[in-house]
Design a protein around this nucleic acid. Structure first.
Lengths: 341, 341
DNA sequence: TTGAAAGCGCTAACAC
DNA sequence: GTGTTAGCGCTTTCAA
C-alpha cells in the first residue's frame, strides 16, 4: 500500500492523502478522517526508505562495539535497544572484534547513509594505536557520535563512561574495611584506559588509607583475546605472587576472568575464600554471580550506560540548535556484596 | 557527493556517470575511467537509501532474539554479523525480551520496509501461546524468514536448529560411560521445544542403555526470567531429590544456570564433583568454563548457527528462482569435556 | 480545501 | 557512446 494507491482508491490526490495522514490543518476535518480510516483499513504503513531519502536522515543508530559475547557490552546493547525502540529508532549493530581495521570499515559502511548517528566503544587496537581519524572525520561531517566505556578525552564528542577510578577505590576500600591489609591487584597494561583508571583508583584508596604502595602487589597482564595463552601465564604469576607474599589476604581484579583465575589459584593453594583471601572484581556478570562462592563485584551498570548513550545520541540527532558543547556523563559504580568478601 | 554533482563537474549526464560507475559496457573505456577516477577523487559513495528505494529492497537483515545478555544468543549474533559483513549486509537487532507483544511490534517495525529478511528466535511467550500469526503473515508477504533454535516445525520456512535430542543423548551417554547409574535431569517444562527435546534425548539414552526411566529423577522447572525466585525453588527441589535418592551420582541440566544451582547444592551436601556426583550441562558458556571445577558441557555452536542462518537468509534474499522448499539445517552438538565428569 | 509538480539520489528503458 | 526521462514513495511549495 502506497500513498498513490490510497489516493486512487479514494479518488483524491496524493498530496491530500499525505497531508491527511500527517494531520495537516490544510485538509478538512471530514476528508482527513475519511483518508485516515481508509489508510487504517488497508493497513497502510509509510515507506521509511522513501521518508529517509526525502528527509536525508534515518531513524537508525549505528552501534559499533568490540564484541557482543561479553556481559558488559551485551548489557549496553540491551540499554541502547530499549530506548531506541521507545523513541522510534532502530539499532544497527556491528562488531569490531577489537580490530582497528574492522572498526574503520564498519564506520564507513554505516556512514554510507542510512545512519543518524553512532554509539561506539573503541577497540583495543584503536586505543593502542591512538589513531582516531575515523572518529574525527565522522564528527567533522556533522554526524553525531557518542562514545562509551572505551573512550579517549581528546575526541570532542558526547561520552558516557563508568567512573572506573571511583569503582576501583570503592572495591579497594571495601576490602580494607574488611580488615584486609595486603591487597593484590590484577590489572591490564596502561594503554587500556579502563585498566589504567582502575589501577589509579586502587593506588588512591591505598594512599587514602595511609598504606604504602607495594609494586610487587600489582600484576599487569597483557590483555588479549587469546585467553588460552594469557590465563595460564596469569595463573603462574598469581602463584608466584602468593608464594612470595604469603601475607596477601585479598585480591582485586579488573575483570571476572582474572577473578576466576585467582579463585583457581587460591584453591590450588588450599586457601579459603573469603576466610584466607577475599576476592572482588570489576563486572557484575554471570561468572561472579554463579561462582562458588558468589563473588562480590563492582557493578558498572551497563544497561544504564546504554540508556544514557542512546538518549544523548537521539537528543543530539533531533536537536534543532547547532552543537552545544560535548557532554561527558559519568556513571558511578556500585559494590555488589556477595560471599567472597 | 551525488551523481548529479559529479555529472556537473565532469560535464556529462547523470546516466553516463551512473553507467560508468557500474562498469556498463555502453560507455567508452575512456570516459568510464575518467568518471571513475573523478568519483574516487571526490570520494563518491552511492547513497544506499536511494538505491534501496529504487530496488525496493535493502541490504539489511532484521534479527529478533529474546535477549542478548545470554551467551548462546550473543554467539549467534556474532555469527550472523560476521557473514552479513562479508556479504555486504547490515544487521538490525531487536530484542523481544521473551515477550510476545514486543516480538510482534518489533517485526512490524522492521517490516516497515528497510529489511531484506528476518532471522528470528521465538520468545518463550510466543512458544507458550503458540501464536505465530506474525511470522506466517511476514512469510506470506514474500519476506524471507529464517528461524533458529527456538523454532516450531509448523512454520514453513528455513530453520537452523541444534540437534537438542542428540546433544542430550550425548551428554547422558557420556555420564553413563563414566559408570554413572543414576542421572538426575534438570529440565524445563515441555512447551519450550528445546527443553522437551533434551528431555527426550535423556530418555532415549537411558532406554538405549537398558536403564529404566525413573520419573523421580526428572525435575521440570518453570522457566522464567525471575531467577531470584526460581533458583531458590530449584535448589529446594534439588535438595529433596538428593535426599530422597542418595544413589544419584550424576546431574545433567539443560542450561548453565541450573548447573550452577546444582553445584551449589552438591557442595552444601558436602559432596564432591565429580567424585561423588558428576555434572554436565547444555551451553558451553563462561559459567561452565570458569566454574570450579570447570564444567563439561554440550556445545551448541552458536556462532555456527548464526553463520548458517545468515547464509541461508541471504541466499534466499538474492535467489532468483521462486521459492524452493524450506530447508531445515540441523547442527550437531558436541561434548566439551572438562573436570566435572 | 484540494491538487499539480518538483525533488530527494539512483537506475534503466529508450531516444538520439 | 551518450543523454533524456520516468519513476521508486514521500513531502512540500505553490497554484487553483
Amino acid at each position: 500500500m502506497t500513498l498513490k494507491q490510497l489516493a486512487n482508491e479514494l479518488g483524491v490526490s496524493v498530496s491530500t492523502v499525505s497531508k491527511s495522514l500527517n494531520n495537516s490543518s490544510e485538509i478538512s476535518h471530514e476528508t482527513r478522517l475519511r483518508v485516515q480510516a481508509f489508510a487504517k483499513f488497508y493497513n497502510y504503513r509509510p515507506n521509511n526508505i522513501a521518508l529517509s531519502l526525502k528527509n536525508k536522515k534515518t531513524k537508525t543508530i549505528g552501534m559499533i562495539i568490540p564484541e557482543v559475547v561479553h556481559h558488559f557490552f551485551a548489557m549496553v546493547v540491551q540499554g541502547v535497544e530499549q530506548v531506541a525502540m521507545d523513541r522510534g529508532y532502530n539499532v544497527l549493530i556491528s562488531l569490531s572484534n577489537e580490530s582497528f581495521e574492522k572498526e574503520v570499515i564498519n564506520m564507513e559502511t554505516f556512514a554510507d547513509s542510512q545512519i543518524g548517528g553512532f554509539i561506539i566503544s573503541l577497540s583495543k587496537e584503536t586505543l593502542k594505536r591512538q589513531d582516531y581519524h575515523h572518529i574525527h572525520q565522522t564528527i567533522d561531517q556533522g554526524m553525531p557520535v557518542v562514545l562509551f566505556d572505551r573512550t579517549v578525552p581528546e575526541i570532542n564528542c558526547d561520552q558516557v563512561v563508568v567512573n572506573d577510578e571511583q569503582g576501583a577505590m570503592l572495591a579497594t576500600q571495601h576490602l580494607l574495611e574488611q580488615g584486609r591489609k595486603n591487597v593484590l591487584l590484577v590489572t591490564t597494561e596502561d594503554y587500556i584506559s579502563v585498566g589504567r583508571l582502575r589501577t589509579q583508583g586502587y593506588v588512591k584508596a591505598l594512599r587514602n588509607a595511609g598504606i604504602p604502595l607495594d609494586n610487587s602487589l600489582i600484576i599487569k597482564t597483557e590483555d588479549s583475546k587469546r585467553s588460552d595463552i594469557i590465563l595460564p601465564a596469569l595463573e603462574e604469576e598469581l602463584k608466584s605472587a602468593l608464594k612470595n607474599n604469603p601475607e596477601i589476604d585479598a585480591i582485586f581484579t579488573v575483570n571476572e576472568i582474572y577473578a576466576a583465575a585467582a579463585m583457581r589459584v587460591i584453591r590450588a593453594f588450599g586457601l579459603q575464600i573469603p576466610k584466607d583471601i577475599a576476592v572482588i572484581c570489576f563486572t557484575d556478570g554471570v561468572i561472579s554471580k554463579y561462582a562458588s562462592p558468589p563473588l562480590s563485584t563492582v557493578n558498572q551498570h551497563g544497561t544504564q550506560i546504554g540508556i544514557e548513550a542512546a538518549n544523548m545520541l537521539i537528543d543530539r540527532i533531533e536537536q534543532k540548535e547547532i552543537s552545544t558543547d560535548a557532554i561527558t556523563k559519568i556513571i558511578a559504580c556500585e559494590i555488589v556484596r556477595r560471599d567472597s568478601t
